[in-house]
Amino acid sequence: MSVDSRRNGRAALAFHTLFMIFLLAPLVVVILVAFTPEGYLSYPTHGFSLRWFREILARPDFIKAFYQSLNLGLVSATLATVLSIPAALALARFRFTGREFLNGLFLSPLMIPHIVLGVAFLRFFSQIGIGGTFASLVFAHVVIIMPYTLRLVLAAVMGLDRETERAAISLGASPWTGFRRITLPQILPGVAGGWMLAFITSFDELTMTVFVASPGNTTLPVKMYNYIEQTIDPLLASVSTVIIVLTVAFMLVLDRFYGLDRVLSGKG
């Protein structure tokens, strides 16, 4: 009885199947179209072709945008993590004046629409004269991804047995040694999970980046968006397919390593 009551019924499984089709259909369609031999958008009804993947190699602008996105993700995720670790330690372990304010401040980008951040950064960076530079992209991305790293590092620190660090200190370790040898290794999964989530968020970001990027410094999503504004051809589908494959690989690593549901619900 108890086991059966926890099984899904036939209707539930039908619902589930439709839901899965709904989720996967657009991705599958993109992948299919990427293999079309035709010069226009169509499904590969007369055999598969790799011509649109070869076409990517002939587009240095797309390749450059891809590397820009990669660099931007690496640099800004790392910077956000480095800023998050000490902040999370302070927020988790000390009660001090301004603690609530800082907590709210660091998480506020989650509540501010990216479009608003985009226009705000556009104005700010052009006023201080660094508009369109790689540095300005990094700054803007750190602001929007730090809530993710902070939440995961914070969850890791809160879930930590504080006494291990005290044990280290009682054995003669300095606070810094205690942190480096005892605390950091234990919160490392949370730190890495936060870094990865931050990286992928930065890599995918479009809305805000559209305003901050410049023709010289553009990211892959912005490049694709601008391309879509002009025309939609199978090149977009092949680029998208590459992105899907890379993201799925990344996701499997993240899930294996930390648990996708834990990362995405921001709990430790």
């Binding site: 259909a25 657009p26 991705l27 599958v28 369609v29 993109v30 992928i200 890599f203 995918d204 479009l206 892959l220 999503p221 694709m224 968006y225 879509i228 939609i232 977009l236 589908a237 998208s240 992105i243 899907i244 993201t247 799925v248 990344f250 996701m251 993240l254 995405l264």
Partner: peptide
């Protein structure tokens, strides 16, 4: 959620 919104919308 991790796949670019542009890609999903293109689909």
């Amino acid at each position: 959620l991790l796949i670019s919104v542009v890609v999903r919308t293109l689909g």
